[in-house]
Write a protein that binds this DNA or RNA. Structure first.
Lengths: 221, 221
DNA sequence: ACTTTACCGGCAGCCACTGCCAATAAAGCT
DNA sequence: AGCTTTATTGGCAGTGGCTGCCGGTAAAGT
């Protein structure tokens, strides 16, 4: 009765050897390394931080570091991805009866749900670094683009259009672009410190701009 | 009387040694290398193409190759930048009395002005490759973001707002996002060959989407 | 205990990329 | 025409990011 639940993949069927590390734990490990990497990047710069240093700081061998990350710069991904996921989660929770602006104003806060303020500070530090570190900027832009898929799913569900239609893709990309500009701005104005006022203003900016973009694009044809 | 004209830089003052290569010629050289690199990337993939191969194909030493490009993937930049510049030029030529949609419909053609059709084919090939080559995608996204500055200048001049204001940045980024999606789509549908019908449709898509984005965002406040 | 499966660390090596230096090209001056 | 000056080029050695490979070990089942 317990190994009958063969739904997909290899199901629960009793396996033989050592079980693979759970995705949960793997992501924890990646996030931990990410925090160390970002700190080192901020302290000494990306070029002056070696993979060996990151590995030592995180308490793993260099070999395993390269198993967890394909490049030095991609070490910042887990932290940034968490921040972006926070917005994706808010978007998914968008109730049908509400205008998007209202929902964002009520639910969107750039402080990560389960993470500490230190992570938010680190994320903004990375965004600030992307100004002078092209490799970091590239990694950041790649992450932002990946999030467009989720945006497209939600927007498609709302409008009834296909998630991979050009119209939906355009809306998702435009929304992502708005978030990028707003986040860059937030990173810039918080260089001297984060205040609740700047965060409030950021939420307001995002809510207003996203609404305008989506309204403009969905009034189509 | 002839070395008095010190306005800025070194002016016209008769210099002594070998003159530096003109930017014109340097860009020609970069473009030439770029064509070879893209061809090799398309034939064997990025990973299987070495810097030495690119250098040999372009007829320069490997050392000078690295002087012209900071990374292997950035060898695609000149070709892509030309294509993006074509749109920037169209945008700059936007006459005051015309709606943006009308202007784009009339003036925008993704065929490069002074370059051959082979270059357009190569550009679309690169965009197609970015689907499976993350490094190329990253380079592509970086170029697109750089073009946002020019977009912002033009849009700022139109609306009277500052080019680095959040509103203008949002418009420029959204416009860039629209172009990105439309270009990805064009690259996808032209995989089997370019027809004038697909190009016409592309122009139509871009004109319509850009207009909607800008209209939505500039009706602000 | 024994087998099986998966993660981990060390080692050797490839290659992208850089610093350094000698060689050469292209200009002006005498 | 030589000499001087400045800039580009190419070779060569070295660094470091990153990978393939392999043996050791952990965690499961039998």
């Amino acid at each position: 009765m317990d190994d009958v639940a063969i739904d997909r993949e290899q199901a629960v069927r009793p396996r033989r050897g050592r079980p693979p590390v759970s995705d949960r734990q793997r992501q924890r490990q990646r996030l931990d390394i990410s925090r160390h990497a970002v700190r080192l990047f901020a302290e000494h710069g990306v070029a002056a931080t070696s993979g060996e240093q990151i590995a030592r700081a995180a308490g793993v061998s260099e070999r395993t570091l390269w198993r967890y990350f394909r490049s030095k710069e991609s070490c910042v991904e887990p932290l940034l991805a968490n921040a972006i996921d926070a917005f994706r989660a808010v978007l998914r929770a968008w109730p049908a009866e509400l205008e998007l602006t209202e929902h964002l104003r009520a639910a969107y806060t750039p402080v990560l749900d389960s993470a500490s303020d230190a992570d938010l500070e680190a994320v903004l530090a990375v965004v600030r670094m992307t100004r002078d570190e092209p490799a970091l900027r590239a990694a950041y832009l790649m992450l932002r683009e990946r999030s467009e898929d989720t945006f497209a799913e939600v927007l498609a569900e709302r409008s009834g259009a296909a998630p991979d239609s050009v119209e939906i893709r355009v809306q998702a990309a435009a929304m992502s672009a708005v978030l990028k500009v707003a986040t860059d701005h937030l990173a810039h104005v918080t260089a001297a410190g984060i205040t609740s006022e700047t965060l409030r203003r950021h939420r307001e900016d995002v809510a207003a701009a996203v609404e305008l973009v989506i309204r403009g694009l969905s009034d189509n044809t």
